[in-house]
């Protein structure tokens, strides 16, 4: 991701952000689309394109959970563990997915395909227990077996051209 590419992306939307600090988030989201996460070079490019210091850009990136400053897998599976989902079995769902992926709790699979995380409410309590893959629609209610199918389907998909987290 080059500075020029980020600047090109920002050009038509700059006027929507009267406080230039607000521009950092769309810029980071766009930059994250490239590799699926934000390596230091990507944050440095955002810093240059937005005119803020690298440290400031990183401080914004680390504030938000969906901006990843550490490398993640091709798909981020975010399992909701807030009240409604927990009452409806999110713990079992999470453990099943972790087992199926061969993970000990949260983390990234060795093949780099999946990153599994517990997240707070994703706003689909009527479909508890639910999960979200990247920024896709919330999926639920899920039985453990449904999750197995989902993972198998994702594994068969070709790698996305750009990531939307």
């Amino acid at each position: 991701m080059t500075v020029a590419e980020i600047e090109q992306y920002l050009a038509p939307i700059r006027h929507e952000y009267p406080d230039p600090r607000s521009l950092i988030i769309p810029a980071l989201k766009y930059a994250q689309g490239d590799a699926g996460w934000l390596p230091p070079e990507a944050m440095a490019a955002v810093a240059e394109a937005t005119g803020f210091s690298q440290a400031y850009v990183e401080s914004v990136a680390t504030f938000y959970d969906r901006l990843y400053v550490d490398e993640v897998g091709r798909y981020c599976i975010n399992v909701c563990v807030t009240l409604s989902c927990m009452l409806r079995g999110s713990d079992e769902l999470f453990e099943h997915i972790a087992d199926y992926l061969g993970l000990d709790g949260e983390g990234t699979t060795d093949d780099g395909m999946f990153t599994l995380a517990r997240v707070q409410c994703i706003g689909a309590c009527d479909r508890a227990p639910c999960l979200q893959v990247d920024s896709g629609v919330q999926l639920g209610p899920l039985e453990p077996a449904d999750a197995t199918c989902l993972i198998d389907d994702l594994r068969a998909e070709p790698a996305p051209a750009r990531y939307d987290r």
Binding site: A55, Y56, E58
Partner: peptide, 19 residues
């Protein structure tokens, strides 16, 4: 110099430099 910022959030907030 723009080097020191806070990273992360809430009780995880910590002083850090870029990368």
């Amino acid at each position: 110099d723009g080097q020191l910022t806070f990273q992360e959030r809430g009780d995880h907030t910590e002083i850090a430099t870029f990368s």
